[in-house]
Simulated scan of single mutants.
Amino acid sequence: MTTALITGATSGIGASFARRLAGDGHNVVLVARNEERLRQQAAELHDRHGIEADVLRADLATDEGIAAVEARLSDRTHPVDLLINNAGFGNKGEYLEVPMADELAMLKVHCEAVLRLTTTAVKGMRERRRGGVVNVASVAAFVPRGTYGASKAWVVQFTQGAARDLAGSGVRLMALCPGFVRTEFHQRAGMGTSNIPDWLWLDADKLVDAAMKDLARGKSLSIPDPRYKALMGAVKLAPRGLLGGITSRTGRKYGPQ
């Protein structure tokens, strides 16, 4: 039986990945900061699907937290076959309004953790000549909007570049770029969502289903909804200054999770 490790597993997109993968018969390793929620989730997945569900409390904004997950990914006796780098957060406010410590924490979680965990996982996967990594980015990667969008743009570029380098190795890497998803993400960041049109909202379970299909097809980039695919096509043609103004009016960022 294969094992999947999911960061940011207790809510939103991460929880949807955990349910989907457990339902498909994968053992899971659930990573988040809230141990109580992790244990409750693990028990529910085990009871419902009969799989093994381990928990790992880790704060990926810290070196200790990243190192703890690296250690689990390095375990050759219990290898991880699929890594979902989903942990992430948003900061309320525009550039210079957000404390530098919060901006640096975001880069730690969105960039350093993704780099370190992907690299650790892929080393073992390449030796076994099988495995996959999904790095959750955002459609914010394609619009000029602050540290959040910049960090997600890095995730996309890194993932697609690594996927090219690993072609033919048996290891698949994919950047997942959702738009607005109905989760706890915006509430946790203190961001209002009343100005976001209903048609822009995505369902997390449907998003994960589309992402898994794209991973199986060998895609290195997944924008899992026709509406957002059309929007991102328009983005390529629109002036960057105009895009910045639009994203300012619709919220600080497009937010997965």
Rank of each mutant, 00 (worst) to 15 (best):
A53R: 04
I66P: 00
A53P: 12
E36I: 09
G65E: 04
A68L: 05
G12L: 02
H26G: 02
S16V: 00
H49R: 04
I6N: 01
D47K: 15
A4I: 12
G14Q: 09
V69T: 09
E44N: 11
A9S: 14
H46F: 03
A22T: 07
I51M: 13
A4E: 08
E52G: 07
L45V: 06
F17Y: 14
R19P: 09
V55C: 05
R57K: 02
A18Y: 10
R72K: 15
P79T: 09
L45C: 01
N27R: 07
L60P: 02
L82Y: 09
V31T: 10
A9Q: 05
A67N: 11
G65R: 05
R37Q: 12
A68E: 07
R19G: 10
A71N: 12
L30F: 13
D81N: 06
R76F: 13
L21M: 11
A67K: 13
A61L: 09
A68D: 06
R20T: 14
S74Y: 03
V69K: 06
V31G: 08
H26I: 04
A18H: 07
H46K: 14
A42G: 02
E44G: 13
D59G: 01
L38I: 06
G23E: 05
V28N: 01
N27H: 13
R48D: 10
V28M: 01
L56T: 06
L38P: 00
P79N: 05
D63C: 04
H26M: 08
L30C: 08
D75L: 03
L30M: 11
L45N: 01
A9W: 00
H78F: 10
T62Q: 05
G8C: 05
D75G: 04
G14M: 10
H78V: 09
T10S: 15
D24K: 09
V80P: 03
L21N: 12
A71P: 09
R48S: 12
N34D: 15
T62I: 06
Q41L: 15
F17K: 08
A43C: 12
L45P: 01
A53M: 07
E44S: 11
G50K: 07
T7I: 03
I51T: 07
G50Q: 03
E35V: 13
D59E: 07
H78W: 15
R20I: 06
T62A: 04
A4T: 12
A71M: 13
I66E: 11
V28L: 04
I6W: 06
R33Y: 02
I6C: 00
I13V: 13
D63T: 09
D75Q: 05
L21I: 12
L5K: 02
Q41H: 13
H49A: 03
Q40N: 15
G14N: 07
D47F: 14
V69P: 06
A22Y: 03
T77V: 15
R48G: 00
N34I: 12
H49E: 11
H26L: 11
A9V: 00
G8H: 03
E52Y: 14
D63F: 08
R39K: 10
V69F: 05
D75W: 03
V28K: 03
L30Q: 05
D75T: 02
T77W: 13
R39E: 15
